[in-house]
Design a protein around this nucleic acid. Structure first.
Lengths: 153, 153
DNA sequence: GCTTGAAACTTTAACCTTGAAATAAATTCG
DNA sequence: CGAATTTATTTCAAGGTTAAAGTTTCAAGC
């Protein structure tokens, strides 16, 4: 019964290998997305992420809501939104009843622009992940979901 | 005939969901690793990555080998190695027979330091991925492996 | 030998990122 | 009310990241 020994040793090694694979895969895909966003739309992944969050919130989002959703620091979002605003894609409006806060919203231009980017983005993902069948996709999704549960999230 | 439309639509959505999950998971884990490397070792993930590459090359690596292995830009590695060198963890030695190039090597201090970091890192990964069993781990690994094959890699 | 093109790096400009400090407004509470 | 605390956001310093441009050296080919 070397099965017992295998069970004791394998998981740690398998996990480290899995992590490196996970990292390599996501970095590879992120790299492709970043490059295409740059060459085809003249934008960046962080900007796309912020616009994606905003596009789901027609009423707008506060800075802290954006940073919370994207799990990045507050100061980070300040700069990205600054650039979005100076490009006419987003707008800061005073938050009603709280003079400290502002609500960020996409402009009409921002919505149009994001529509185009999102359509391309979805097609790219479909292309880049085409190697994974629907069943495998579902299995991975559930496995990672279980993982997400235990983190602070 | 909405079956045809469904077949055309569903996999794409599943893949997009999978991608977002993949991204969330790896970013979450990377965030934990980055924070622990910072608080417990006063270093960063990029520095750890470079040191990990160097630790596998006792003879040292050229700058372009490092950037190629890590799939980051050349200019990027320049800065990271600069800081490693100024901290006494690595050293640039002239490449024999090529005055353009230098070979980067870990110093004795760098090797010691990396040993400690690597041990902690492996334990952290084991902890963070503990929610995934060995079988699931293997399955995900193979699915992502199939994916990696088709990319430029 | 010289010139031309490729290769190995570094530099630069612009952006992203974080954690910590600073500002300012809202809230709590004595 | 007024002080202390908390909350929302920006600013700052240091580092990471890329693509593009610049420098130096090597390798061919004439």
């Amino acid at each position: 019964m070397n099965l017992a020994a295998d069970r004791a040793e394998a998981p740690s090694k398998a996990r480290l290998r899995l992590w490196l694979r996970l990292l390599k895969t996501t970095r590879g895909i992120e790299g492709v997305l970043r490059e295409r966003l740059r060459t085809e739309f003249g934008t960046t992944l962080p900007r796309f992420d912020v616009m994606a969050a905003l596009s789901r919130a027609p009423e707008g989002m506060r800075m802290s809501e954006i940073s919370g959703r994207l799990r990045v620091s507050n100061g980070n979002v300040t700069g990205i939104v600054d650039r979005l605003v100076s490009d006419g894609l987003a707008r800061r409006v005073p938050a009603p009843g709280d003079r400290r806060a502002a609500v960020v919203r996409l402009t009409a231009l921002g919505r149009d622009e994001f529509e185009r980017q999102a359509a391309a983005h979805e097609a790219w993902i479909d292309e880049l992940l085409s190697g994974i069948g629907a069943e495998a996709s579902g299995r991975i999704d559930r496995a990672l979901d279980a993982l997400a549960e235990e983190e602070t999230v």
